[in-house]
């Protein structure tokens, strides 16, 4: 069996379970198997057959992007971690929104 660590935002789909077990030969197959057991999982994890950007999947400790992506092989005893990326930035920032909103206020005056 393969152990899959489920991140908090997906635990609603697994009835609160933080770890589930399943069998699959590749990451792509794992997504299908998880979706069968926990409907909605496929849509959360992938888009058009590809793992969503900003979702990191690790087989044991390796990021699948540096192995074989969705086709990364899995074997009995593997531990899978699904981890949302951490990103952000000041693009379209609050300050520019504030600047924009005061500019539009100014337009009305």
């Amino acid at each position: 069996m393969i152990k899959v660590r489920i991140p908090t935002p997906l635990q609603k789909l697994t009835n609160g379970k933080a770890e589930v077990e399943c069998s699959a030969k590749t990451v792509a197959e794992l997504v299908d198997v998880l979706d069968k057991d926990y409907p909605g999982m496929k849509d959360r994890l992938s888009e058009g057959g590809k793992i969503r950007r900003f979702i990191n999947i690790y087989v044991n400790e390796e990021d699948i992007r540096f192995v074989n992506k969705e086709e990364t092989s899995l074997k009995d005893g593997d531990a899978i971690s699904i981890v949302p990326a951490i990103a952000g930035g000041n693009w379209n920032s609050t300050s520019s929104q504030l600047a924009a909103s005061s500019a539009s206020e100014y337009d009305y005056i």
């Binding site: 990191n56 690790y58 400790e61 990021d63 992007r65 540096f66 971690s81 981890v83 990326a85 951490i86 990103a87 952000g88 930035g89 000041n90 693009w91 920032s93």
Partner: peptide, 11 residues
Amino acid sequence: DYYEMDAEEQF
């Protein structure tokens, strides 16, 4: 105006 943590370091 952007950051993204390195995925392996994050893990």
